[in-house]
Design a protein around this nucleic acid. Structure first.
Length: 236
DNA sequence: GCGACAG
DNA sequence: ATCTTGTCGC
């Protein structure tokens, strides 16, 4: 498994991190429709933390978009490169996620992030950031509405309503299971919002959260537990 | 100024 | 994110 240190020149302050976002934001491509939903490959990425030890583990799991079978998977561990600050989540996750993606034996296709893309205070969330750095089509599927507002979608799976920053639609509250709290979908890079929602529905035949995220979540937890046990019980 | 706030 | 067992329900 690959190990990652915080990259040289990585932002050390919130001000620096926000400057990086302002600098990279122009690289986001919003006028592409993206891969056809339900075809090709779809990759989920997620990370797990042990803040006590400053360790982070990331996982990337590639699924066949039709069967949702696992095609490839990879993990990476690293040191926590930034504290959790709402709006700056990407700086905490990206180095290790990039390493996991690099370790894959095949092309990722569409990347599904656990978090936001365009739906972000500066319109540059984790999915946008990862998309710009890799050039890959990305979307964000979050479990919470963050600071945004929305009207509750209809009760049936597939119902959606705009996710709003004031009057601007930055994403969509999408019901993936009948009568269950919606997920919050936003565009990352090179994918339209309609397609982002279609992909999300294709990835949720049985659970609220996309299969990609579920697979990546369990894999990165296992990877973290592995290193955490290796380093011995109590904090070293 | 205070509270809220993806993971 | 993470701390955490059993339990109610389909």
């Amino acid at each position: 498994m690959t190990t990652v240190r915080t990259p040289a020149g990585w932002p050390a302050t919130e001000e620096q991190a926000r400057a990086v976002q302002d600098d990279l934001r122009g690289g986001v491509v919003l006028d592409e429709t993206g891969p056809l939903p339900g075809s090709g490959r779809v990759t989920g990425v997620d990370v797990a933390y042990d803040d006590e030890r400053g360790v982070v583990a990331a996982a990337a799991v590639v699924l066949d978009a039709v069967t949702l079978d696992v095609v490839a998977e990879a993990t990476a561990v690293g040191e926590v490169s930034f504290p959790y600050v709402p709006g700056l989540l990407a700086f905490r996750e990206i180095p290790t996620v990039l390493a996991a993606l690099d370790a894959l034996s095949c092309a990722p296709g569409l990347v599904v992030c656990d978090g936001y893309g365009l739906a972000h205070p500066r319109r540059f969330g984790l999915a946008s950031h990862l998309g710009v750095l890799t050039g890959l089509p990305t979307i964000g599927v979050a479990k919470n509405p963050f600071t945004f507002t929305y009207d509750d979608p209809g009760p049936a799976r597939g119902s959606a309503s705009p996710l709003l920053a004031g009057t601007e639609e930055v994403g969509r509250a999408l019901r993936t299971r009948d009568g269950v709290k919606p997920v919050f979908v936003s565009v990352g890079h090179r994918v339209s919002l309609d397609n982002a929602c279609a992909h999300t529905l294709a990835l949720t035949p049985g659970y609220r959260v996309p299969e990609t995220t579920r697979r990546a979540d369990s894999l990165c937890r296992r990877a973290l537990a592995e290193v955490t046990l290796q380093e011995g019980g109590p904090i070293v």
